[in-house]
């Protein structure tokens, strides 16, 4: 499964000028990492979300991380915009894991 992810913001304004990205084909990941990620995607219910159930524009939340997420292949791919406060609770563990993977990738020498 193809995943494109980006995040930025928070209290620190991290990656404010250029969001930190992470792109991956899940098939190319080590088995354990892939299985956990696919389980998080399944448990998040993100593939069943309608766009309106994702973040609905600006709210009163301040210093949240903001995310863009595209999952799937070609024309069937789905894209979402989320932030920490308004993301559906079930999606938050997935966003957290993708954030970790993005940071790990950046830290790799």
């Amino acid at each position: 499964m193809h995943i494109e992810f980006e995040f930025s913001g928070g209290y620190g304004g991290l990656f404010a000028a250029k969001p930190l990205g992470y792109r991956v084909e899940t098939d190319e990941l080590p088995d354990e990492v892939r299985d956990k990620l696919l389980a998080l995607i399944r448990d998040s219910g993100v593939l069943e979300l309608k766009p309106a159930q994702a973040t609905g524009g600006p709210g009163p939340q301040r210093d949240v991380f903001t995310y863009s997420l595209t999952i799937g292949e070609g024309a069937a791919a789905k894209s979402f915009a989320f932030d920490d406060a308004s993301a559906p609770p079930a999606v938050r563990p997935l966003l957290s894991r993708l954030r970790e993977l993005a940071v790990e990738q950046r830290m790799r020498p």
């Binding site: 928070g10 209290y11 620190g12 709210g59 009163p60 939340q61 301040r62 210093d63 949240v64 991380f65 920490d84 406060a85 938050r92 563990p93 957290s96 970790e100």
Partner: peptide
């Protein structure tokens, strides 16, 4: 809040 969450925020309330 969350696991290893590297942030703090105000949610409006």
């Amino acid at each position: 809040v969350g696991e290893n969450y590297m942030n703090a925020f105000w949610d409006g309330d």
